[in-house]
Design a protein around this nucleic acid. Structure first.
Lengths: 237, 237
DNA sequence: GAGTGGTCTAGACCACCCT
DNA sequence: GGGTGGTCTAGACCACTCC
């Protein structure tokens, strides 16, 4: 029921959304289990099914539930992965990688311009990063100079960036990061099974190495509710 | 018009959204100016006004437009502020601050637990950070030990955290950051005039100082499309 | 075949802004 | 008063899943 204090001058769909969110946070609705159907909720709350749908869609947008047509609406389990950037290395040693594509491509993301990327086409290696038995964690697009050795490309296709460099015995000279949030592109949204436009936490990077001519650009992005970054800075002296 | 290649198996409201987004990116619709009304677009595209509204609401969710009831729907100007964290200091010297509230409060955000915050109530100073002539940039909640001097509280009420410490002549020993994205709470959404649940880029911090007993916790959050962080890491040797 | 969520439409009412 | 976006409803159709 929508009680007056829940209502509190909000619109109906907002009140419904809040009540459903309360139930999720109370544990009345459990993770990975379906909540009652639209029709059931409609009669329980005494509001139109459309209003229920509206509330559910907003709950999807904030990452609280996932709706699967024909099955039901499920409470999302909240688990964030933490990456520590204090030493510049994003530790992903135990992560699995699935290669998605390798293609010649220009770097087009406007946020990338900060790193003064090459204007010519680069070799773009796209891959998914995940842990066994878990939904995909991140999607990485690595841009390499088109004339790099095939052995190097293979390593980048199979490992996260810093792990690939480690295996190749290439030393890092400098890393620049840009962390921002941006909405998911259509293709990325499909991969993660999230609504189009879902916010992604992104880490754009430029890695310069001691190997002559080897500078790596890239973007690692993850659904905003799956990842966070930590950073520790000691003051000098 | 919704051309077949724009349609491309998408749902109607997705096609409409994409077409409107194209027009914004092409410059056909200009920043800070209203786009045609729902009714106009409805007849132009030959779809129901409801479908137009759906597309517009999704465009609001991704930060492309702002709708103002009674006035129209306006193209949002995209301007991101960049904060460099390389030296641990978030440079906000020229920013203005508006104090929102000072209250006794417990730290309740679950993401904060990483810093092992005190369980007791703290003094919470909430403020808005903005640049003259611009929409608000960020919202900061600083948690101080309840027994700090009033002079210190005043400085934190009037300046961003690191600027306040600088003015007070207090040295920083260590800073820990946690960067994540989370959805806006109701109150924050009102302050920024963004839809409820809008994604915010957050930086949680714990600052330890050389002044005995003075450890500062806090959360600085900004609409995801207004802020980004950069970080540069030199390799040793 | 029954139940699920997703889409699209039609129509009504409201609060708000501007002139 | 006429235009705007926001809300809520009713009803229909579809694709999908599960039994």
């Amino acid at each position: 029921m929508i009680t007056p204090q829940l209502r509190a001058s909000r619109s109906l769909h907002e009140s419904v959304r809040q009540e459903l969110l309360n139930r999720i946070q109370n544990g009345a609705y459990l993770p990975n289990l379906p909540i009652p159907s639209t029709a059931t909720l409609s009669s329980e709350f005494g509001v139109s099914p459309i209003t229920i749908k509206r509330a559910l869609r907003d709950l999807q947008a904030i990452g609280a539930v996932t709706a699967i047509a024909g099955k039901g609406t499920f409470v999302k389990e909240q688990r964030r992965f933490l990456i520590d950037l204090s030493d510049g290395i994003a530790h992903l040693e135990t992560a699995n990688v699935r290669l998605m594509s390798i293609a010649n491509e220009k770097i087009s993301d406007p946020a990338m311009e900060m790193f003064n990327p090459p204007g010519e086409a680069t070799l773009c290696v796209r891959k998914m990063i995940f842990f066994a038995g878990e939904p995909p964690l991140a999607y990485d697009s690595t841009y390499l100079s088109p004339d790099v050795d095939e052995a190097i490309i293979d390593k980048f296709a199979a490992r996260p960036v810093t792990e690939a460099l480690g295996r190749l015995g290439i030393r890092i000279r400098n890393i620049s990061y840009l962390i921002d949030a941006s909405t998911a592109a259509r293709k990325v949204a499909e991969i993660f099974a999230i609504p189009n436009g879902y916010p992604m936490l992104r880490r754009l990077y430029k890695v310069t190495t001691t190997k002559k001519g080897l500078t790596i650009f890239g973007i690692l992005q993850a659904p905003f509710d799956r990842l966070s970054y930590s950073l520790n800075i000691q003051s000098e002296n």
